[in-house]
């Protein structure tokens, strides 16, 4: 225990300083009818996130783990990962949606209480990425649930993920 305490004292703060707040548009790209803007105003500063791996290779999961880790510390912007979709406001989907995960993804989305948002993280969730036309694929995330924001990359950098979350929370 003393060793741990000395390590904490010696290490100090690991989190990198926040990049400047992104110039917040009234609504992120993809919003055509103003609902997402209204949703974000309702959530204002607090977004609980439920993550669903719909068929990913885990590369995006590693990056999301890094985004919520001490270095990038996405929690400081008001985002938090939760276990149950009933506790969540936003659904982040990684990976191409495989056939077996299509219905569970729909149900997870239905279980989230309104107002809710969906973020597709990674190229596979946006447009099937390298798995387009594979035999087990049901589609991109946008084919199963309505997607409100996207984070491109294979995998996207943690900074990009954090920037997307900051657009949702507004902090």
């Amino acid at each position: 225990m003393l060793r741990l305490w000395r390590m904490i004292r010696g290490t100090g703060r690991i989190a990198e300083p926040s990049p400047p707040r992104p110039a917040r548009a009234a609504a992120p790209r993809g919003d055509t009818d103003g609902n997402v803007g209204a949703t974000m105003r309702a959530l204002r500063g607090s977004v609980q996130i439920r993550h669903v791996d719909a068929g990913s290779c885990n590369g995006c999961e590693v990056e999301i783990g890094a985004a919520f880790g001490p270095v990038y510390d996405a929690e400081r912007y008001g985002a938090r990962l939760v276990a149950s979709p009933r506790h969540a406001d936003a659904l982040i989907v990684t990976g191409v949606v495989t056939r077996n995960m299509a219905e569970p993804l729909r149900r997870t989305h239905a279980a989230i209480p309104a107002p809710k948002l969906v973020v597709a993280i990674g190229d596979c969730a946006r447009n099937c990425g390298v798995f387009a036309d594979a035999y087990g694929v049901a589609g991109a995330a946008g084919d199963i649930v309505p997607v409100d924001a996207e984070v491109p990359g294979c995998p996207p950098r943690p900074e990009a993920i954090v920037a997307a979350l900051r657009e949702l929370t507004g902090r």
Binding site: R107, T108, A110, P113
Partner: peptide, 11 residues
Amino acid sequence: RRRARLWDCGG
């Protein structure tokens, strides 16, 4: 209140 399906992890 909205009637919702029980959360069964989607299965």
